[in-house]
């Protein structure tokens, strides 16, 4: 995977629930650390847009959807384990 790929993220959160807030912080920190200037983040609040969550099949919050690069992946949770996120994004070998 090219290092210069753009990572497009959608983060579904449940309002200001503690683990959602934590996920927003963790994602920001992660992107800064591992993907500087290579990312776009859209935060979707399921309380405001429940239909969207329903259509996308987002039932657990927070859920991170990785839109690009393909394939689309989903990571559920507060993203507190950076290693797991790296692995899921296929970036593990670059940071090892």
């Amino acid at each position: 995977m090219n290092r210069r790929d753009l990572f497009k993220f959608q983060l579904y959160v449940a309002g200001d629930a503690p683990n959602s807030a934590q996920a927003i912080d963790n994602l920001a920190a992660f992107c800064q650390a591992h993907l500087p200037d290579q990312y776009e983040i859209e935060i979707v609040d399921v309380f405001r847009e429940p239909k969207r969550a329903l259509a996308e099949g987002i039932f657990m919050t927070p859920t991170l959807v990785v839109l690009t690069p393909p394939p689309v992946r989903r990571i559920v949770g507060t993203l507190s384990h950076a290693q797991t996120v790296l692995l899921a994004l296929g970036l593990k070998d670059l940071t090892a």
Partner: peptide, 22 residues
């Protein structure tokens, strides 16, 4: 989903919000 990756804690708030709308 079987390919679901989990990192840290989560809750069912999303589902309940979606169900509420429905």
């Amino acid at each position: 989903k079987s390919d679901l990756v989990q990192s840290g804690d989560f809750d069912l708030g999303g589902m309940l919000a979606a169900l509420e709308a429905q």
